[in-house]
Design a protein around this nucleic acid. Structure first.
Lengths: 143, 143
DNA sequence: CTGCGTGCAAAGTATTTGCAAACCG
DNA sequence: CGGTTTGCAAATACTTTGCACGCAG
């Protein structure tokens, strides 16, 4: 995964900090808070400010390289998602792993909104929470 | 709409403040922030604290009498929704009006999650944003 | 070079909490 | 009367901003 290349493609300077943030999310394979990313960044850099982490996460999310989790606690969480197509996510509430879903009922929604409300859809969000196979397997073990 | 009765059914004391908050949301017909509810409360009560508004909104939402909007700005917004069945909402990003949707692809989602991830769904969120018929009509006028 | 990126310090601000007093049932 | 509910003040904590310096292209 050539993050350097990805950044250049988006006309973002490939700074060490930026690359590291991408790398951390890429290898985490779970969603992380800005603070958690910061903690990992501090292991790689002597000086690294929390605002830099916030700014980069927001920037990268804005360009679609990483995605945000919609979380009930209303805090920010990000994860790496290489899928460029429109899609939604399954979030494991136990281990925080995020998986792509291919199902999207956009057509049907648009149809209902148009028919019953005569309104226009501009966007929609959807997210599925649950327990992934790994986590439910671990739970079995514990018993 | 007998809010007094609703509260008693849920074993919540029907205090004037609580009833007023419900009443405000009920008549607003759009989603409101705690602060906006507070502003309206101050017109009805000489003393009314913002924490009281926060606490009641959260309490009422917890019991399902009112609902929360999932908002990109990650702030709290509530609206009155009498529908007790599981359903989702269409939110007009122009006037903040919220409409019920009946479409829900829960079955299909569960099927995909189970088949492709072998995971278990515990909950899901979904919300549709757009422009309601009133707002798009008004825009036409302006042109 | 030159403008984007970063560090640091500081501000902002929605949301919560603690506790004593008031109040509903 | 007894457990809720409320007001007020204060705290929390996440997130953002300003500005001067540094670095990638």
């Amino acid at each position: 995964m050539d993050h350097n290349h990805i950044l250049k493609e988006l006309k973002l300077k490939a700074t060490p900090k930026r690359l590291a943030i991408l790398d951390i999310l890429y290898h985490a394979s779970i969603y992380l808070s800005p603070d958690e990313v910061w903690t990992q960044m501090k292991e790689r850099f002597r000086t690294i400010g929390l605002p830099t982490v916030y700014r980069n996460l927001e920037e990268l999310a804005g360009r679609g390289i990483i995605s945000k989790v919609i979380h009930p606690d209303r805090k920010l969480y990000y994860f790496f998602c290489g899928n460029r197509e429109h899609h939604h996510h399954f979030v494991c509430t136990s281990c925080r792993k995020v998986n792509d879903l291919s199902f999207c009922a956009f057509e049907e929604i648009q149809k209902e909104v148009s028919r019953t409300l005569n309104a226009t859809v501009s966007s929609h969000i959807m997210q599925v929470f649950g327990i992934c196979s790994n986590c439910s397997a671990n739970k079995e073990e514990e018993q």
